[in-house]
Computed example of a mutant assay.
Amino acid sequence: MKNWLFLGVAIVAEVVATSALKSSDGFSRLMPSIVVVVGYVLAFYFLSLTLKVIPIGVAYAIWAGLGIVLIALVSWVIYGQKLDLPAIAGMTLIIAGVAVINLFSRTAGH
């Protein structure tokens, strides 16, 4: 169970780091740049902890899929970036894919 918590922390850290990447303005602003570096270090550290139990393909699919959806939501809320119907449909399919992996795959390491 803690491995799934570690994966969740990795996802959140990656989303925070990627969100700060835009604010870093090409690493020209100090504080957002620090958030980017610390966020990615934490993301990869916690992802590496999950790989002790969760297969890399499953962990990465969940990490990347949920990261895409969460970054799109953060971009919409914080930066006002619009999501059109095809983007929303695609993200819905990503969420469905993550759900299928978690609910039905024997590979998921449950």
Rank of each mutant, 00 (worst) to 15 (best):
M1L: 11
M1Y: 10
K2M: 14
K2P: 10
N3R: 12
F6R: 09
L7S: 06
G8E: 11
I11C: 06
I11T: 14
A13K: 11
E14R: 13
V16E: 00
A17L: 10
S19F: 07
S19M: 05
A20G: 01
K22H: 13
L30M: 14
P32K: 12
I34C: 06
V35W: 03
G39Q: 11
Y40P: 02
L42K: 08
A43E: 02
F44R: 07
T50C: 14
T50R: 06
K52D: 10
I54A: 04
P55G: 08
I56D: 01
I62L: 15
A64G: 11
G65H: 08
V69E: 04
L70V: 11
L70D: 05
I71S: 12
I71P: 03
I71N: 14
A72Y: 12
S75N: 15
Q81K: 14
Q81P: 00
K82A: 12
D84N: 15
A87F: 04
A89W: 00
A96C: 13
A96G: 14
G97H: 12
A99C: 09
A99E: 01
V100D: 00
N102L: 15
N102D: 00
L103A: 15
F104C: 02
S105F: 07
T107F: 00
T107V: 07
A108L: 03
G109H: 02
H110I: 04
